[in-house]
Amino acid sequence: MSEKKTNRRDFLFTATYAVGAVGVGATVWPMVDQMNPDASVKALASTEVDVSSVNPGKTITVLWRGKPVFIRRRTQEEITEARSVKLEDLKDPQKDEDRAKNPEWLVMLGVCTHLGCVPLDQKGDFNGWFCPCHGSHYDTSGRIRKGPAPTNMEIPKYEFVNANTIKIG
């Protein structure tokens, strides 16, 4: 078999395999993608919350993407406390200003970053939250101060669409 003939034969087979592989990939993708969040789930990716009835010192919990979100209207005392914490004292250093752009409102995912339990409000050694599962203590900014949780409670994407409404997500 001459070199040329072998090359041509190989090229045909290689081309066939390559084109075939493209088809296999194109076929597999929809089967995989159908498990991704569907359009109706993605439509609920954000939610708007009416906070007009939330007075200072009060926390409400809303469901967003299947998880609890704490919305707390903080008292001046809590704000001052949160802002005066030294960053070196924090396991996960983060300024309160970066967590609550509008200092009066703390909006965060009510999920303990240790193993996912929902921390209890107004409990613990730091005037914030306490997780009963394994003893994590969070401060008035939702930052981890004591206990096994590695990071602060997560701040989701949110914005005030007007004075009374927060859009989360």
């Binding site: 045909l12 081309a15 066939t16 084109v19 075939g20 493209v22 088809g23 194109a26």
Partner: peptide, 9 residues
């Protein structure tokens, strides 16, 4: 695509 692949095969 199928027509092309069919021809190759």
């Amino acid at each position: 695509y199928l027509i092309i692949l069919t021809a190759l095969v």
